[in-house]
Design a protein around this nucleic acid. Sequence first.
DNA 1: TCTGGTGCTGATACACTGTAACATCGCATC
DNA 2: GATGCGATGTTACAGTGTATCAGCACCAGA
Lengths: 164, 164
Amino acid sequence: MHDHSAVHDHGACCDNATDALARAERLCAERDLQFTRLRRDVLEAVATESKPLGAYDIAERLSGQGRRVAAVSVYRALDFLTENGLVHRIASRNAFVSCGHQHGDGAGLVFLICRTCGSIDETTSPEVDDQLDKTLAKAGFKPSSRILEVEGECGACLGHDPNP
Amino acid sequence: MHDHSAVHDHGACCDNATDALARAERLCAERDLQFTRLRRDVLEAVATESKPLGAYDIAERLSGQGRRVAAVSVYRALDFLTENGLVHRIASRNAFVSCGHQHGDGAGLVFLICRTCGSIDETTSPEVDDQLDKTLAKAGFKPSSRILEVEGECGACLGHDPNP
DNA sequence: TCTGGTGCTGATACACTGTAACATCGCATC
DNA sequence: GATGCGATGTTACAGTGTATCAGCACCAGA
């Protein structure tokens, strides 16, 4: 689980996971939703990893010692978690990451995917959103959702890279 | 791309296809690449359809009357076409559309995916790119490629819609 | 002409991703 | 207890994408 290899400092992973779980628990209580064991475990698996995980990766991690979690169950849990903004799907990777922010309902996210270390960071940019809205309005297009994923090299890897 | 005014006039799609084929032929001649029958047929299939096509859809269309085109061949042709900017992959749909622009090497595209009619339009927005570059610079991230796909309702469908 | 190399295609197999359909279980409510 | 509902388990299957090897056309060079 924790192969914290030099590059990416993830002492934060554990905090990340506990934060995410706490936030999920609170949110489910507010909305009167069930935060079941499976959903908890799936969220924990995703949150303890800075890289995006595939549904089958998650199923494999949760299986073992008498427990068998089928991929289809993982998909259902992921559907629940994404619908409630606790997990995001990375379309370009067919994989999932836990949400690191408490942003208002998943709008306007930008995902930064590092080619070198595979980690994913998540930011928002109101300026990009504004410009995008203008562009869409000019095209007569009414948006309902969007994905914006950037691949490249993250700051940490650039720092280690001899030839940036 | 052409202006899909009013309903969705598909007289224009044929022109779209012939345009795309002509452009491909020219580009391959310039770069000294082979524009083979399979590549031509795959591009034609994608270009005559305003909706995104899956690789298996394309394989099915090209097969028949003694010819059998396996999906793996289609994938190879699609790889070639996307590398040369003649076709774009829509990550959120696992599907492909032909490129409607002669933009400089596929940078900065925005895909507008209509939920109602399924068509895909393609635009560019230097303003969005500028803001995105600033955001990435602030985050210390060096981008090498990006995808930006917006789902919603296109102008044509909004025009028909009683409640826009 | 032969020979070897290169690039494209055909074909099979396989891994990965995602969904449909049905059975079961736990739990709350009546 | 009976009923209904949501979550999970299970199996099967469809869709997406890659690996690998073999054959074929074509060109360059001996």
